[in-house]
């Protein structure tokens, strides 16, 4: 397996505050990589660094083996932000069409892909509705669809299931597993423990520091507990 994302001694400061402190990690192609931590731990900052929206104050980040220096690298991944970044006046279809067109997909390909992702997130029937009439869950799903529309080899999802009911959450996770089988690398942040267990590997983040990184099973084994919650408490307590 080759490396998709590699972070080396990454530090990010905002003013005087250090948000991300000396993070080293590597994410393999085709895995579901989870970033688990309480709110304020720096999860969003970390994924924005990976997406190239933020620049590290120190350290290096490479994507697919090369430095994140070129705009063209941005087309390799899809980004689903924590807030639903959608144009409220436009319909679901128009939103997807706009984002897809930025990736220079041909008209035919665009139509095909939009249909596919709408199907995937179960929004085909509301495709011509303006987003402002959507429920919170529908907006979440449309956000996910917009991150997938250009068939990226990696997707970065910032708290994708916040405010989504369990049934829908299950269906989003099924979707993510399907994508994984197609070879897509998935990076997902969460603060929900049971969601974290669905990831192949997990990084535990607290106050900008990475306190542990492993598969959920070995994390539990190492500290000899049965739930992720206890793992987190164990490591979290240690740093205090």
């Amino acid at each position: 397996m080759s490396t998709m994302v590699e972070m080396k001694s990454v530090i990010h400061r905002y003013g005087k505050n250090t948000i991300i402190d000396q993070v080293n990690l590597s994410i393999q192609k085709g895995e579901i990589f989870g970033l688990l931590g309480p709110s304020g731990a720096g999860k969003t900052t970390l994924v924005k660094l990976m997406a190239g929206i933020l620049q590290p104050s120190e350290g290096t980040i490479s994507l697919n083996g090369s430095d994140l220096q070129h705009l063209s690298q941005m087309k390799n991944f899809g980004f689903m932000a924590q807030s639903d970044a959608l144009y409220q006046e436009l319909t679901a279809w128009e939103n997807l069409d706009f984002f897809a067109s930025i990736y220079h997909l041909s008209r035919k390909k665009r139509r095909e892909r939009i249909r596919e992702v709408l199907e995937m997130v179960d929004l085909s029937s509301s495709k011509d509705q303006p987003v402002e009439t959507f429920s919170g869950g529908m907006k979440r799903r449309l956000s996910l669809a917009s991150a997938l529309v250009h068939e990226p080899e990696m997707i970065i999802l910032d708290e994708p299931t916040v405010g989504i009911d369990p049934v829908l959450r299950q269906s989003i996770w099924n979707e993510l597993n399907d994508l994984k089988h197609k070879g897509v690398t998935i990076i997902v942040t969460t603060h929900v423990m049971d969601e974290a267990e669905k990831c192949d590997r997990l990084a535990l983040l607290r106050n900008g520091k990475m306190i542990a990184m492993d598969t959920p099973e070995s994390l539990k084994e190492k500290v000899n507990v049965s739930s992720m919650e206890d793992v987190f408490l164990h490591y979290g307590g240690e740093t205090k």
Binding site: A51, G52, I53, L71, S72, Q73, M74, K75, F77, F79, A81, Q82, S83, D84, A85, L86, Y87, Q88, F99, I102, Y103, S146
Partner: peptide
Amino acid sequence: TQGTLERLLATPIK
């Protein structure tokens, strides 16, 4: 404020 700028800047748009 609605986050679409950030979303847009996560694409290869100049």
